[in-house]
Design a binder for these strands. Structure first.
Lengths: 273, 273
DNA sequence: AGGGCAATGTCCGCCATCGAACGCAGGTCC
DNA sequence: GGACCTGCGTTCGATGGCGGACATTGCCCT
């Protein structure tokens, strides 16, 4: 099932049809070609080089559980593609997404924040590829990476902001608004307009019932904003979706891009100037 | 209106009747007597001493705005008594609390996290006293305080957990449950069973309407769990309240106490071993 | 081609909460 | 003592979303 040859992604549970997504990218791990993950991209060259040998590229498959609530976190993930979710579980069967992680961020903040676990579950939402480091190695390496340390601080704040906004949003906004917001956030983290997503899953993400999401999604579709069939969804009118979504989308996005500009270079320049 | 003599708290808007709360405490800023704030308490002596000269004690008055959304944060606050709230503001008039801060924590995490602002508002909820440092000084001092740095990392995680839990809680639990939870969280941060609190304010905190809170509060009172009149509330049956509250209370509390034990000593022991 | 499952559409009754208003009472100030 | 404000209780209709169930429709598998 896996393909244990040299540079290939480690993969426990891959489906064959996920493979083509990543065909172009992986053997060039630690050189200066474009790094898809925003955080790694913002690491200065020296610190990136230090990290690189310990980064392994793995494939993330749909619904894969990366860690459970209050379980020790064994790896820290830097997604290149795909989308992950941090999910809070309440008393049996109720579960709500509290945070979304894609190539703008990392999964495993608790490791950075001096703990080895958190009461959240991490699940793969949209399949993709990530680089990962073992938690222990990561902890050690951080000592010598002051610049990257700061990058992670900023990301921590951005993530905190996202979660905080969700707390308010979950209280105030309608299913349709939240649905639109969620789709936009996911779209931001994707390279294509089409991605796999069932309404079942979406319902959990939004902390709503599936029929409710069904209606909301049908509404958005009838407005021509999205289009979906059996677990595949396509964003067909982004502007329109932004209108349909609540303000929360813009607030979180702007804050993220302010503290971690998507096109910024590392503060200690690679070689020039 | 203020009292600019030597060690006295700076105070822009104090009401006279808040004064007795703090009569015993303030002139002994930087010595090793018991520090009321859990984070400062966990700082090793050397680092605490470095911080101490820059800490000024201020009085926090009810409804005082400590900073507004997206405003530069000028001070970092370590409450000794009283309770603060981080509030998310949505499109005009809707506002929801996303985090609570008392003597277990600090206000101004964005400063620690390499930013100078966040889209949250910070308001005093229950009057009290806090130590504060200017944001700039705090940033500088942090470089030399690696142990305290770690403490703050842990607190960041605890706060993140609290906010994440609120996101889920806000989506799922009833007003009564959230009301009970909120009272418990506040009670944890208080030294007494009675404190000022209007249902108006409580409604904002819970992101609900005032009449809704009125009913929930009346319910809790009729069960003998609390008691209130005109802006003063008393916790009369803590155990009972814990039963009435949702699981979120316990989850957040346990997580906090695990990453930052309330009675722990600084990791670099004062003199022994 | 047909069985079966996964994903979606839809219907019902119901309840918590909303939105907006009005009435009352305790405390404060003149 | 009276005016006033703030905090609390309560009412009414409206409604979004819940809980649970059932009917469809693609897609996959054999």
């Amino acid at each position: 099932m896996t393909h244990p040859s040299s540079g290939r992604p480690v993969d426990d549970t891959a489906h064959a049809h996920d493979a083509e997504i990543l065909s172009a990218r992986w053997p060039t791990l630690h050189s200066q070609d474009y790094e898809a993950n925003r955080l790694l991209r913002l690491a200065p060259a020296a610190e990136y080089e230090r990290l690189a040998p310990h980064l392994e590229t793995v494939r993330l498959t749909r619904r894969q559980l990366l860690y459970g609530p209050n379980e020790p976190i064994r790896y820290v993930y830097f997604p290149q593609t795909g989308v992950l979710s941090a999910i809070s579980h309440l008393h049996e069967n109720r579960a709500v997404e509290v945070g979304t992680i894609g190539n703008e961020g990392m999964l495993g903040l608790p490791v950075f924040l001096m703990s080895d676990r958190a009461p959240l579950e991490a699940v793969v939402h949209v399949p993709g590829v990530a680089k990962r480091v073992s938690a222990d190695t990561f902890r050690e390496l951080l000592h010598d990476c002051s610049e990257f340390h700061m990058v992670l601080h900023r990301y921590t704040l951005a993530f905190l902001t996202q979660v905080a906004q969700s707390a308010a949003c979950n209280r105030v906004h309608s299913i349709t608004e939240r649905c639109a917001r969620w789709l936009l956030m996911t779209h931001d983290r994707m390279q294509t307009d089409r991605f796999p997503l069932t309404q079942d899953l979406l319902a959990i993400m939004l902390g709503a019932r599936r029929p409710g999401v069904s209606i909301a999604a049908a509404g958005l579709q009838s407005l021509g904003l999205i289009q979906y069939t059996r677990g595949r969804i396509a964003i067909t009118d982004r502007k329109g979706l932004e209108n349909a979504a609540c303000e929360c989308y813009g607030i979180v996005r702007q804050h993220l891009d302010r503290v971690l500009p998507p096109d910024a270079q590392p503060a200690t320049p690679p070689a020039s100037s």
